[in-house]
């Protein structure tokens, strides 16, 4: 691993100032489960690594604010997967957090880090899209809230501006009852990168939100407001037509060695149908 300058700010403002000063030459270090691999293999060669774990404002926390559930940037997957409020109101997010890597990875990896890496295969992204999460970012110009669907650009690229740091992920109040589930495809049952990762949420008004990743350059959100998908009595052909529309943005890379495009596209449909059934069941039980 090449060497670098290591900064360990304790105040958010210091981190913002460092990030603004160094721009792309700086990398934020939260859990490190992606960054340290990249530092070692040389695909990231920052001059400055800014460790954000000692910043008071970013300490691990899951708190309720104005009806929202706010997950602090330092919060790790283990704590998200175990949190009663997340499990109750955003179960798909808890399920997604519970399958990110192994226990050791989940003990370090943060939700904010997972989001900021903007990996198309990020398992938490579909759940955040279905739940219409917002990314809270603080930068030189102050604080702004970015709807998660407007955050991802492509692998490794987000709409964060220079000097901006994600401080939290906000989940809006679960004002309408929703049944939601996260499903994925992997090459083995033990931990693995997903070849398809998908979340489906059906709410009490009949709206179905499906988000999926690992089938294109960024995770995709698609919504069916017609109520057809959520209606167990709707004809199969009608549902299939809607699924085709919802999955139209999937464009898996033929270069990937994890799965071929045709398999991913087929599995997207299998997972979509399975997730829809589970989501409807969960809504009924809610």
């Amino acid at each position: 691993m090449h060497t670098f300058a290591y900064a360990r700010p304790t105040l958010l403002a210091e981190a913002v100032a460092l990030l603004e000063a160094h721009g792309p030459d700086a990398r934020l270090l939260a859990g490190g489960t992606d960054l340290i691999i990249r530092l070692r293999d040389g695909s990231a060669r920052p001059g400055v690594v800014i460790d954000i774990k000692r910043i008071a404002e970013l300490r691990p926390s899951i708190r309720e604010e104005a009806g929202c559930l706010v997950i602090g940037a330092g919060t790790v997957m283990t704590d998200i997967a175990a949190d009663e409020r997340v499990r109750r109101s955003y179960p798909a997010l808890a399920e997604a957090a519970a399958v990110v890597g192994s226990v050791q990875i989940r003990n370090r990896a943060t939700l904010a880090g997972n989001v900021c890496n903007a990996s198309p295969a990020a398992d938490t992204a579909p759940a955040l899209l279905v739940h219409a999460a917002r990314v809270v970012a603080v930068g030189p110009a102050g604080t702004r809230r970015i709807p998660i669907d407007g955050f991802f650009v492509r692998s490794g690229v987000t709409t964060l501006a220079r000097g901006e740091i994600v401080t939290a992920i906000e989940l809006p109040p679960p004002d309408r009852a929703m049944g939601a589930v996260h499903l994925r495809r992997t090459r083995r049952r033990g931990h693995d990168l997903a070849s398809v990762t998908l979340c489906c949420g059906v709410d009490a008004t009949g709206v179905t939100r499906i988000a999926y990743g690992s089938v294109g350059p960024r995770p995709v959100l698609a919504v069916d407001e017609s109520g057809v998908l959520a209606d167990p009595t709707a004809p199969g052909a009608a549902k299939e037509a809607i699924f085709e529309r919802l999955f139209a943005d999937a464009s898996p890379s033929p270069r990937s060695m994890r799965a071929s495009p045709d398999y991913r596209l087929a599995m997207l449909r299998v997972l979509g149908a399975r997730a829809l059934r589970i989501a409807i069941d969960r809504l009924a039980q809610a």
């Binding site: 290591y6 340290i36 774990k53 226990v103």
Partner: peptide, 24 residues
């Protein structure tokens, strides 16, 4: 961070020590 051979317990939780900088 795939094999776990370097696992240690850090403040009560297991980590892959190959993915933690010593300064952290």
């Amino acid at each position: 961070g795939e094999c776990g051979a370097c696992t240690v317990i850090l403040d009560g939780r297991t980590v892959d020590s190959c993915l933690v900088l010593a300064v952290e």
